[in-house]
């Protein structure tokens, strides 16, 4: 009975489904990459700040002597 009814063309739904699946995954990977890049930038800035603060401290100590 089911064999007699022609298979419906639902490829539009399929394409939409796969498109959404890939776009969602791509967006997630992109968001992770973006967050990671921002954090790396923060890290370098903070490390520089930390370094300069320590240098200042050291310089302050030397001039104090």
């Amino acid at each position: 009975m089911f064999l007699q009814t022609p298979t419906p063309d639902t490829s539009g739904y399929m394409i939409a489904g796969y498109a959404i699946a890939f776009i969602t995954m791509a967006l997630y990977v992109a968001s992770m990459a973006l967050r990671s890049r921002n954090l790396h930038q923060d890290l370098t800035t903070l490390q520089e700040m930390d370094k300069s603060a320590r240098e200042k401290e050291a310089a302050g100590k030397q001039s104090g002597r």
Binding site: T5, T7, P8, D9, S11, Y13, M14, G17, Y18, A21
Partner: peptide
């Protein structure tokens, strides 16, 4: 993706949309 879209046969009653099932279950 290849297996789901090309390799697997088209389901007769529902047609191509059944192919989203593979990713659906996987996720």
């Amino acid at each position: 993706t290849y297996l789901a879209l090309v390799f697997a046969p088209t389901e007769l009653v529902m047609g191509d949309v059944q192919r989203v099932f593979y990713f659906h279950i996987g996720t």
